[in-house]
């Protein structure tokens, strides 16, 4: 994408909003792009863990998108990916220490999956597809949108799994003492099944308007 230098600076508000909402909804990394499956499944057994993971990923995405966008014109093509990975790994290391400093229980619950943010394809994907071609402000917003979209998806999964599997939301018990939790949803199979259900909901919701349009076309023909 060849942006003329003068064009880049005054990005309109509409454009910025688009960069932001694109990740949050239209191109939601989990529900639409089906990326970053490992943390999506692994840490969503409670809303707290899901939120923590979502925010950690958002932090890395925003920082790496910003820095990569800053250096995008200096990086030669051949060492592009190596540079991106180096930058991403740096911010992942930082977030690893930050979480440990903020809360050790959260750190323990997320375990190795904090370090594994480094191989989350969403981050390298955004670096390559967006930040390497767009100005700093837009890249930052794109990172924020994608990150929050990811956090939103994780929370959707964590919410379903925690409510069904433990009868609580964010640790607050929702049902009476007689509630028999559906423990399977806290276990690995629950992760797979919940994500499958969400994907089904999303794809059937997306398929609906198309069917209507097809039906109209048929009538017209």
């Amino acid at each position: 994408m060849a942006h003329v230098h003068g064009q880049e600076l005054p990005a309109s508000t509409a454009e910025n909003m688009e960069a932001f909402f694109n990740g949050l909804w239209n191109q939601n990394p989990v529900f639409v792009q089906v990326l970053g499956m490992c943390p999506t499944l692994a840490v969503t057994n409670s809303v707290r863990n899901a939120l923590a993971m979502g925010l950690a990923t958002t932090f890395v995405l925003v920082c790496s998108n910003t820095l990569i966008s800053m250096v995008r014109k200096l990086v030669p093509k051949q060492v592009r990916i190596a540079t991106y990975i180096l930058i991403i790994a740096t911010f992942v290391t930082i977030v690893d220490y930050l979480i440990k400093a903020i809360s050790i229980p959260v750190y323990k619950a997320l375990g190795a999956f904090i370090a594994l943010i480094v191989v989350n394809c969403i981050i390298l994907g955004r670096a390559e597809a967006y930040a390497s071609k767009n100005p700093v402000g837009k890249s930052m917003l794109d990172g924020l949108g994608m990150g929050l979209g990811f956090a939103f998806a994780l929370t959707c999964l964590g919410g379903v799994r925690e409510i069904l599997g433990a009868g609580s939301f964010l640790g607050i018990h929702l049902f009476g003492a007689n509630f028999q939790p559906w423990v399977l949803f806290l276990l690995p199979p629950g992760g797979f099944l919940t994500l499958a259900a969400w994907l089904l909901i999303f794809s059937s919701w997306k398929a609906r308007p198309r069917k209507k349009a097809e039906a109209l076309e048929e009538i017209a023909a």
Binding site: P189, L199, L200
Partner: peptide, 22 residues
């Protein structure tokens, strides 16, 4: 069914396999 093809189907199967591995 059309909507279930692809990733959603694989995830459902993985869920069942995962139960078996438990």
């Amino acid at each position: 069914p059309g909507v279930a093809r692809g990733t959603a189907l694989v995830l459902m199967l993985a869920g069942i396999l995962s139960m078996a591995f438990m």
